[in-house]
């Protein structure tokens, strides 16, 4: 995972990003070995809690992916964990709403599709409903028309 971090960029912060993922995986395996728990959780509440925990932990890693220095990462982490009490607000309400809607959509999609295949869903849904969803997505792509040069890997 350390090498995986370096593959993303030549900075120690990327190594930390990969290292944290490695630590998470190691801890998960250690817990499984100690407890003997195998397979996926069955109860929905366990799934939800573990899913949100994973999401929160991965968000910590992204700080190191984005920050240019460990000092910068530390400042962001302090803010994330509520230690930047005198900080000026920087995020507009509209940004928080957009992010909230996107995250809720992603979680809902993951929840819906976790044990399903796309082919199954398409086969079982009414054809007009699938068409409607596809049309909505295609229309959104057309009227959003972003710049291709923003693609992250163009930076390499």
């Amino acid at each position: 995972m350390l090498l995986g971090g370096l593959w993303h960029g030549a900075n120690w912060t990327f190594v930390a990003w990969g290292g944290l993922h490695g630590v998470y995986l190691a801890v998960e395996r250690w817990i499984r070995d100690r407890t003997g728990i195998r397979g996926e959780p069955v109860r929905w509440i366990n799934r939800l809690v573990l899913g949100l925990l994973t999401y929160a932990l991965v968000n910590v890693t992204w700080v190191f992916f984005r920050a240019h220095t460990f000092g910068g990462a530390a400042r962001i982490l302090q803010g994330m964990f509520g230690f930047a009490t005198d900080a000026e607000p920087v995020l507009a309400t509209i940004y928080m709403i957009k992010v909230g809607v996107l995250i809720a959509s992603i979680v809902a999609t993951q929840w819906l599709m976790r044990d399903r295949e796309l082919e199954q869903v398409v086969s079982r849904a009414p054809w007009w409903l699938t068409g409607l969803v596809c049309a909505a997505m295609l229309f959104a792509v057309i009227v959003t028309q972003g710049s291709g040069t923003a693609f992250i890997y163009f930076q390499f």
Partner: peptide, 9 residues
Amino acid sequence: MGWLVFLLV
């Protein structure tokens, strides 16, 4: 489905 998508878009 394809025709529906085409028409709607």
